[in-house]
Design a binder for these strands. Structure first.
Length: 310
DNA sequence: AAGACGAAAGTGGTTGA
DNA sequence: TCAACAACTTTCGTCTT
């Protein structure tokens, strides 16, 4: 198979600092330079069709397949679409009679595509999921997952008595947790019409009813996100991860909120590297209070010897 | 004056009777 | 259903740089 264009030697160098320490970070769906923290590519999602061709014959055959199916469109993108131009394949205007025919076809197409209430509901919900996800810059696989979860909820008749937007927001949160993408309830409620409390309630409801097992978020995910948002150098993030590792070895992380841990660890790392950030700056971005950072910070300093990192 | 610290009271969720 | 509980937040006064 031909090598993909991405793996050429050019793409392996950071356009910002020229370093070749480019790391793929699948968990936050980014390609990041470990030298300076520059995000080379922010969205790793494969936009192509989901098949691969192993020789030219297969390519010939398979290239005739349509767009890949997707769960984000209520009919999985399988239905025919009729464009709104009154032109034929050659770009010529259609004669009057055909024009009327096409108009009728289009009308029925519309009616058939989104037929009953359930379909309409699904169509609305899935567009809502896409809207919110795009606002959060979520990779495509998370949107797909959220769509699947929502479909499941509909199938199990869990929407009754709940708002569509509440359930969609919750489905996105579940999808983020499952895909290991660091997003808080706060993040989601900021771009959705639903408040944090309600998203949380719907989330717990979904998890319970659909028997999902959700692993607790690893603080490491938030470190990456935090350091990027704080525009800290890549080595700060590296040190933060090391501290986190040492802390989890000493069981200092269990039972604690991952955002608080990530914030404290990043705070320490920023001090150790001389790129000091104030508690307030970090608290604001990490969506925790300074007090929480201080508490975690205190615990960490008491139990860890930081000289080894200096 | 900004930032860090810490005490005290309050909040929302979980757990177990 | 309710109280106990842990984690976290809010608020505010004090200390440090």
């Amino acid at each position: 198979m031909k090598p993909e264009s991405l793996s050429s030697s050019d793409a392996r160098r950071c356009p910002e600092c020229g370093s070749n320490r480019i790391m793929k970070d699948h968990e936050s769906a980014e390609i990041v330079c470990m030298g300076c923290g520059y995000v080379v590519i922010a969205n790793l999602t494969d936009q192509g069709p989901e098949w691969r061709a192993f020789d030219s014959e297969q390519l010939e055959k398979r290239a005739r397949a349509g767009a890949p199916t997707t769960f984000t469109i209520h009919d999985k993108g399988l239905s025919t679409t009729i464009d709104w131009h009154d032109r034929d394949v050659h770009g010529q205007r259609l004669p009057q009679g055909q024009k009327a025919q096409i108009y009728r076809l289009r009308k029925w197409q519309r009616r058939i595509r989104v037929s009953d209430a359930t379909e309409r509901n699904l169509a609305f919900a899935l567009s809502e999921i896409s809207k919110i996800s795009n606002n959060l810059n979520l990779p495509k696989n998370v949107i797909e997952t959220a769509s699947v979860i929502y479909r499941k909820a509909v199938k199990e008749r869990l929407i009754r008595g709940r708002t569509i937007q509440g359930v969609t927001s919750a489905a996105i949160y579940v999808a983020c947790r499952q895909c290991g993408v660091a997003r808080t309830l706060e993040d989601i409620s900021q771009v959705s019409p639903i408040n944090k409390k309600e998203v949380g309630r719907s989330y717990r409801f979904l998890v319970k009813e659909l028997n999902y097992f959700i692993k607790p978020v690893k603080a490491g995910l938030y470190i990456t996100k935090l350091c990027n948002q704080l525009t800290l150098q890549g080595n700060v993030e590296e040190i933060a991860h090391k501290i986190l590792f040492a802390a989890s070895e000493l069981r200092l992380t269990s039972g604690r909120g991952p955002t608080g841990i990530a914030a404290a660890v990043s705070y320490i790392a920023s001090i150790l590297t001389g790129e000091r950030k104030t508690q307030r700056e970090i608290a604001e971005i990490a969506q925790v209070t300074e007090v929480t950072i201080r508490n975690r910070y205190k615990e960490l300093v008491e139990r860890l010897q930081f000289t080894i990192y200096l």
